[in-house]
């Protein structure tokens, strides 16, 4: 193993890791947005909205994320959507993880005991007031861990934008292999950095989860 080489190239990897982090953060934000809207649609009183929500989930969970990235980046220009690779990657991955988050959020909301809603409605609170003050505060606590699982998956999923030349960790590793012919060292280094990111994120989520426990 070429330790010297690793020591020479790692600053470039750290720089690329910043791009990976940026991707992960933006994807999380977009995913949570799509997930919240998706969950609201899936639980809506309107049959049409429920259908839209269900279709969204089955399309984006039913096809490879890589295909979704390719369709948006390579296929987009054909239908007039011209995006740079970073934007296309972020949007495709965010909308993709949003489909998973839709189910996570919906599951957490529906796991709140029906008696809670009944008690609140009986006091005269509206559907929305009940959701906001009684159901969501309880559901939020329950969704932290499963959303953490989604976020773990999306961090690793950011590697899927390497093929469209977003200069993130995996792409950087591949580029250095081209010049050094040392795939073992390069992928190992990239893998270690992914692991560090996942570890820190996981700790953060576990901390949030502990903080949110109802005493």
């Amino acid at each position: 193993m070429d330790i010297d080489l690793i020591l020479r190239v790692y600053p470039f990897f750290l720089e690329a890791a910043l791009v990976t982090l940026e991707l992960a953060l933006l994807t999380t934000i977009l995913g949570l947005t799509c997930g919240s809207l998706g969950a609201a649609a899936r639980m809506s009183r309107s049959r049409i909205l429920r259908l839209i929500g269900a279709t969204y989930v089955s399309i984006f969970r039913g096809t490879p994320a890589l295909i979704q990235v390719f369709i948006l980046y390579f296929g987009g220009p054909q239908v007039g959507i011209q995006l740079d690779s970073f934007a296309a990657g972020t949007i495709a991955l965010g909308v993709n993880i949003g489909a998973y988050m839709t189910e996570t959020i919906r599951g957490a909301i529906q796991s709140v005991d029906k008696g809670q809603t009944e008690a609140a409605r009986t006091l005269g609170m509206s559907r929305w007031e009940t959701m906001r003050k009684v159901v969501l505060p309880q559901a939020m606590r329950m969704m932290i861990r499963p959303l953490g699982v989604n976020i773990n998956a999306l961090i690793k999923g950011t590697a899927l934008v390497a093929p469209i030349s977003v200069i993130e960790l995996t792409y950087t590793a591949q580029r250095f292999i081209g010049s050094t012919y040392k795939p073992f060292e390069m992928f190992l280094l990239a893998g270690l950095i992914y692991m560090a990111i996942i570890y820190v994120t996981g700790q953060g989520i576990a901390w949030l989860d502990r903080k949110a426990r109802i005493t």
Partner: peptide, 17 residues
């Protein structure tokens, strides 16, 4: 109208949070 009708349930249904 529900504001005028109090209800108590078998399983209490207090808000745990």
């Amino acid at each position: 109208v529900r504001q005028d009708i109090g209800m108590v349930f078998q399983h209490f249904n207090l808000f745990p949070h």
